[in-house]
Design a binder for these strands. Structure first.
Lengths: 192, 192
DNA sequence: CATTAATCTTAAGGTGTATTAAGAAATGGA
DNA sequence: TCCATTTCTTAATACACCTTAAGATTAATG
């Protein structure tokens, strides 16, 4: 199954599309191949595309004043990864987006997407739902990081994202959880 | 200046409205008076209104499994406070919204707002911008709480929200910052 | 393969923040 | 004005998590 088929079947989990709409949709996205470690979006740039991962694995991370990295989100096949705020407001991104594996991404430019909304109205609904989900995920994460211990957060991460845990380095999971790799290592030892 | 005038001048900071539109807008909102400690939205309920604070002060907070409260957001005159996710998706709220002072709120029901979007299209733009701001505020808060110490977060809170710091109890600021009131007290002593 | 680079673990010692308990200060209601 | 309630502070002790440093594994590369 090629990248665009994956996108279509992903869309069709949420909305219905006619044959004609399917081909309009396909024509609106362009495919990009990323090497491992390649950066798709740099902090400081404006994010002009919505990005669907057809194959591979990405991370979005923030770099603080001391150049320490904080992973905000992972993404694998079937996920969307972006600095959403930058995309929505055309302001400079605060996050980097980088491939952790060789990755295939389908991208659509904001202008093209706005045109697509006109041609295929259900697409607008699809993205509205995406934005809402992004918001609740962020809200959950905020509340979570404030009210739970590192151990609880790790156990939750493991049960929620087992497929991710298995393919990204442990020190990145530590970064996502907001702890040091050493402490995560100690936690894992204790739990087992 | 009455509550509805405050709303109008708030809207007009972002969008333009004709005389006729102003009166349509005003008719769409209803005014509610809250006593101190009165709860406007309970976790578990669906939030069906967007809420503008004309006068007073509110907090939105989450209650965890151990019944500990975590303040997610404060709001004073000119702010909007809500469990936005619940509002957008018609799912049960995870947060409570409660008055910290005698407060006047203007509320608009989701259905009424959708009608208003038709009648006064610029209103839709106003709310889109609100939703975007809510998202970035949340994103900032998440990154912040992961990458900064309690002292840094407190100093930032103080310079950003001095007007709020002066009118809400210190232990609530501690809750907002994710620390205990005792530790905040110690921090303040140390800083001075 | 061999070598280097990336990742993970261990351990000692330190720091930030929580907990508990008590009392002091401020505020609000009768 | 007084009492009750709410809020803030202090201090001792405890724990979660960090820092540093080193070595052990594992994976990537020529």
């Amino acid at each position: 199954m090629d990248a665009k088929d994956k996108l279509l079947s992903h869309l069709k989990e949420t909305i219905e599309l006619t044959q004609e709409e399917e081909s309009i949709v396909c024509d609106s996205y362009s495919e990009t191949q990323l090497k491992k470690k390649e950066v798709l979006l740099f902090a400081g740039e404006v994010s002009n595309h919505m990005r669907f991962i057809a194959e591979g694995c990405l991370r979005a991370y923030h770099m603080d004043e001391e150049a320490k990295e904080h992973i905000v989100q992972f993404g694998i096949e079937g996920w969307w990864v972006n600095d959403l705020y930058s995309y929505l407001t055309c302001t400079p991104a605060k996050q980097f987006v980088q491939a952790l594996e060789p990755t295939t991404v389908l991208q659509i430019h904001r202008d093209t997407l706005n045109e697509l909304y006109e041609k295929v109205p259900t697409i607008e609904r699809f993205y509205r739902l995406k934005f809402e989900k992004a918001y609740v995920a962020l809200q959950d994460r905020t509340i979570n990081s404030m009210s739970k211990s590192a151990e609880e957060r790790y156990l939750e991460f493991r049960s929620k994202y087992r497929s991710i845990e298995q393919r990204v380095p442990q020190y990145m999971i530590a970064s996502y959880l907001g702890i040091t790799p050493e402490f995560l290592s100690a936690l894992r030892k204790k739990i087992k």
